[in-house]
Design a protein around this nucleic acid. Structure first.
Lengths: 171, 171
DNA sequence: CAGTTTATGTCAGCCTTGTTGACTTTCCAA
DNA sequence: TTGGAAAGTCAACAAGGCTGACATAAACTG
């Protein structure tokens, strides 16, 4: 333990103490425990309606980018089309998602939430936002900036691109 | 969108702009994309050896608290004993984990990593720490403090207790 | 000491969500 | 007009959650 600390900060004085193996392990556990909290509230709502996290993810990104194609959703979610298709099929059957054939390219399906879909989306995202809001508020704006900076650095480059796609640069 | 921004910062000037629905949505997506990066490297190693994330979690917490009991692990991981038992059984069969009958209370099994178990643990945690270290380094110490503060606020109280159990208060 | 509770393990069966592989239909674009 | 991309479908499988029922040993309790 002592050696690890020494090696991590070696040659730079105390400036890199936040990079010791122990701090890194704490960061790892923070991610693990926080992600559980992060998904807990939506999971409860989803379970009531017979859906799972996969449905939540689809609904979230369709809501964020109405009219997105199946292929685009595939690259964001990083699953196989068979997996995604199973989820989308139930959502379309249940009337939560509408898949419109593309006008320019008729092979593509453009995905939209229906009214019912928007109701579910709002329930899920409100639950999740409530927890996030309370965490943000308690931690404060500077902490939030750090939170986002670290998470962004932790993403794979491809995912980071998808993340930044959703960023509003107009401010 | 404009109304949301207004409502979130209402009555407090611009101080609460970081709590707008849009910022919260970005935080939600940051968690989603970052968690994928967070698990990507260990997942690759695990897949090579025929294990999954469930094995990683067990190995991680046994390494963190050698001699921990099955019950304690259950409360940390938040799964059923049947789920955990399936994982522990394969780990014991494969000689990565040793389950010693308790001396004080012979009903309990105390869990330890074997030499082979420690080898796997090191491979997994090194991969994960490398990513975390690079993220921490690029974001800087203040960002890391914020990262941890927000994640801690996002945890369920029970999980937060487990998280803090692992904290080193000696500094 | 008898009865209850606790810790653990196990069997069976179910669900979600991921996977691979093979195949079809549609239809744009060179 | 034909090759290939986009999308959908079927089948089979695995990991890893879950519930419910039951077994065993040990510890605790009255």
């Amino acid at each position: 333990m002592a050696e690890r600390t020494a090696s991590a900060s070696m040659g730079r004085g105390d400036t890199l103490l936040f990079l010791t193996d122990d701090h890194l392990r704490r960061g790892i556990e923070a991610m693990f425990f926080a992600y559980r909290g992060f998904t807990a509230d939506p999971d409860r709502i989803l379970a009531e309606q017979g859906y799972g996290r996969a449905h939540h993810r689809a609904v979230h990104f369709i809501n964020r980018s109405p009219g997105t194609t199946v292929n685009n959703l595939l690259s964001i979610l990083g699953v196989t089309k068979q997996s995604l298709n199973r989820v989308l099929r139930t959502l379309v059957e249940d009337g939560l998602v509408e898949a419109r054939v593309g006008t320019r390219d008729k092979r593509e399906r453009h995905l939209f939430l229906t009214g019912d879909g928007e109701v579910l989306e709002r329930a899920l995202s409100e639950a999740q936002r409530n927890r996030m809001r309370s965490a943000f508020r308690n931690a404060g704006p500077d902490a939030v900036a750090g939170f986002r900076a670290v998470l962004e650095e932790m993403m794979d480059p491809d995912m980071r691109r998808h993340y930044l796609d959703g960023v509003d640069h107009n401010q």
